[in-house]
Amino acid sequence: MSKKQRNISLAVFFGLIAALLVGIFLTNGAEKTESVQEAMRDTVLHEAARINLFGLSVNPAMISAFCVTGILLLAALLLRIFAVPKFKDRPGKLQLALEQGVGLFDGLARENGTRKTRFLSAYIFTAGAYIFFGTLFELLGFQAVSTAGASVSLPAPLADINGAIAMGVTSYSIILFGGLFAAGPRGAGRALKDISLPISMSFRLFGALLSGAIVTELVYYYFSLSFVIPVIVGVLFTLLHAVIQAYVLTMLTAHFYGESTEKHEKKKKTSA
């Protein structure tokens, strides 16, 4: 590196720092349009921002859910048409990634589910993909127009309590009916024993995603450097939640499904 190049690099570096400091001081005096209580309440309950969906007034997360489903199905269709027919015995990078995804959830199902693992692995594959990509969806920052005419950033589908409850109840239904079909009334009974499961699954999902959202919201609200730190915090938190929540829900579903579908052998009566 020549002396001239070094001077240019240093000038760019210090210029960037100066620009950031100027930005910090200029944005410091910005007035808050809502109190932190209102911001938190809106983040948790989504009461203020409602969106019209074919005549139905829904939360923004509902729109996010349909968007995520559309994106995932479109991606799956493209992969099915262009990638899957070209699969080889020695996989390339894309094929390897797809096989890893399928193999990961299939392995998880086989480890825990004693019977009907094919259905379970397909279910947790879908649930894992939905939670992971759904959580990452909020990073895209898609906007929608609320019924009040305001612009709303679309959140993760599971950041809405209704989405989390739907996910938890669906998973519990899979466990319950999987147990019923695989192991009869005894299997269903084992699932019913854990009646608190749908609630715990739902609120675990909701709480985990919400905690990330709240932390990010607080950083957005209080931090002066609103165009550097929140980006890093938001991306890191979102990525972390995407991985952790996808793993936790699929692992729990596989575990409880395995318990409910397990078939116990009848004890032989021994004559005294």
Partner: peptide, 22 residues
């Protein structure tokens, strides 16, 4: 109603992903 809508959405996704990709 929104819970049921989320469930419908997930069932559609499950069916689609299963037959198209999985």
């Amino acid at each position: 109603q929104q819970i049921l809508l989320h469930m419908l959405n997930f069932v559609i996704l499950f069916g689609g992903l299963y037959f198209i990709l999985y």
